[in-house]
Amino acid sequence: MLAYVASLHQKGTHPATWPFDYEWEDLGPGYVYGNAFGHWDVVHEIIDVLPSYPEHALHQLLNDIKNQEPNGLLPGSIYMPGGLSKRDSVTWNKTTQGHPPLWPLAVQDYVRLTKDSAVIRTFYTPLIRQIAWFENNRKAEGEGFFYNDILLKKWESGVDEGIRFDEVAKGPLACVDATSHVYALYQIAAQWARQLGLDARYYEKRATDLRTFIQTGLYVPADGMFYDSWAVKDPALRNLPFESMWPVVTGAATPAQANQYIDKYLLNKTVFLTDHPIATVGRRDPKFELRMWRGPAWNSMAYWAARGCLHYGRKDAAKIILEKALDDSAKQFKRTGTIWEFYNPLGGKPEDVKRKPNTKYNTPCRDYLGHNPLIEMARLYDSIK
């Protein structure tokens, strides 16, 4: 299976062409919307190839920041010619839709592995500009940040048709994922500023402010659960979406909060620890269904959950999550000979899981790489088993 994933990386890598300066990697040859670069898919691909091909990983990071808008917006998916869509031109959204800003975490991984801290100078300014874009365009009422899912349902968060936005009224309200992601940006900006001999005080303060807000304003102690701001205020709007894990992944949660969350939710078979973890909606949630982002398991999210567990010293939890995800992925690969966009959380066939019933693409994509950092998941598992 891992050899096949490596071959998908190879097949999905194209020569440098506009708008990229370096060879670029697509989301996988089976992506129904054709050749595309970016969103959080490319971050998973970068992390997956980093130990084997650090130069290629660096080139994808440089490609990712290449088309940053003057206002700091980093585009979501850049749609390229070719692939199943047979598109003949390059298009992307330059105004209303960004993507989850996980790329600085991949830069951190690159520096940690290669010791090439000089690249921080290249990535520092794009990071600061993206923070400014979030502050100017995604600042929530009061404190925190939001994704435009709540306003436009453009699925900027990467979670198409996520359950969190089914009932909530439109408004600039703090989202637990966006707020946690921007918290990570502040943390990394402060670190890079110090390394570059620059003033880090603003980013340190904002990181502290957001951490406090996440631990208090986006947390319900009685549930031991992180929620979006509207669900904290209204118990009727509380569900069990996997996005609640991001305070743990980014290190914003207190150790006590993180350990309770891991034990009560990530390791709970009635919530996220399904046969193929992690379920994107808790198994016992009334909104759980075998439909894209409303229950099915994405290997990338199992990976981030495992990283969150390791951040708090929970090797036991990370091992369980990774082992179950890798085992079922291998089982389905042996049966079908392909890597699936997402998986049946109950251990059944991915073919039986719905994608988008209102479109002609209603089954998970085959040969999909963007959410399958399986090589890195296996490395991580080997390091802790």
Rank of each mutant, 00 (worst) to 15 (best):
Lys319Asp: 00
Arg335Gln: 07
Ile262Gly: 02
Pro29Ile: 10
Asn239Gly: 13
Pro221Cys: 00
Gln257Thr: 03
Lys139Gly: 00
Leu322Tyr: 04
Ala169Ile: 08
Thr95Leu: 13
Arg164Gln: 14
Val159Phe: 12
Thr359Met: 13
Ala325Lys: 10
Ala178Cys: 05
Arg194Gly: 10
Leu73Met: 03
Phe272Gln: 01
Leu310Lys: 04
Ile375Arg: 04
Gly82Thr: 07
Ala302Met: 02
Thr122His: 11
Ile278Met: 05
Asn93Met: 13
Glu143Ser: 14
Lys94Glu: 11
Thr125Val: 09
Met245Asp: 00
Ser117Ile: 09
Leu2Glu: 00
Ile120Arg: 15
Lys170Val: 14
Met292Ile: 03
Arg112Ile: 00
Pro235His: 04
Pro345Glu: 10
Asp149Phe: 10
Asp234Gly: 07
Thr17Val: 11
Thr336Trp: 08
Asn71Arg: 14
Gly295Val: 01
Thr338Trp: 01
Phe242Arg: 07
Tyr22Ser: 12
Tyr53Glu: 14
Lys66Leu: 00
Asp64Trp: 08
Tyr203Pro: 06
Ser157Asn: 03
Trp92Lys: 00
Glu376Lys: 06
Arg335Lys: 09
Pro286Tyr: 09
Thr179Asn: 00
Ser180Gly: 02
Trp230Ala: 11
Thr179Cys: 04
Leu267Val: 01
Gly162Asp: 09
Pro255Thr: 03
Arg291Glu: 15
Ile65Met: 11
Val107Phe: 12
Ser85Tyr: 05
Gly30Gln: 06
Asn358Leu: 14
Met80Ile: 08
Asp48Leu: 03
Leu127Ser: 05
Gly295Phe: 02
Pro29Asn: 08
Trp103Gln: 13
Tyr22Thr: 07
Leu61Arg: 03
Ile262Cys: 01
Val232Glu: 08
Asp223Arg: 11
